[in-house]
Design a binder for these strands. Sequence first.
DNA 1: GTTAAGATCTGCT
DNA 2: GCAGATCTTAACG
Length: 196
Amino acid sequence: MLLTRSFYKLDTEEVACGLLGCCLCHETEEGLVSGIIVETEAYLSRNDPACHASRGMTRRNATMFGPPGHAYIYFIYGNHYCFNIVTGPKGLGEAVLIRAVEPVSGLDLMYYRRGKVESITDLTSGPGKLCQAFAIDKKLDGHDLRNKPLFICGKSTVGDRQIVVTPRIGISSAKDKKLRFIISGNKYLSRRESVG
DNA sequence: GTTAAGATCTGCT
DNA sequence: GCAGATCTTAACG
């Protein structure tokens, strides 16, 4: 059950929330890896200085202004990629950052790609980490997530889980906005839940 | 052409 | 808990 374009076109905060529990899959020559999304952040076009699109379209963020359901991937801090999903109608410039997933299949491949990790909870518990484990890089920028090799399936065997909203992480502006969505208590979150 | 800042991770204290 | 790694992007001259 692939997620449809009409889903990605919804309000960005709705998509960020709705993506929790969905399954991210990536097929490569090395094999298939997949994981359940457990942590997301919404980046809005209006009144959100932390969003790359807040100052208009540039070469880097052009993908954010494209059709919803495409991957927006950028390189940060010289070492890491961040994986986003474009949301809202085309031209709006909003996206959802995938911050953490719970590994499901392809664990050996994830360990191999990540190199030295001591715990399974270090495989994909952060934006840079999951991109490395999933072999996501700039070649996939603009990729339509309804197609292989990188795609997202809807909720399957996931039961009811409690979703919590908190302030975003790792940004210096607009910290007060509660646009981070997590599955409460999940051990693969990028950081521990703090009491709001 | 040059420079400052960044949606992070890791290792050391 | 804190600083360093490391390089792309964007703003400025």
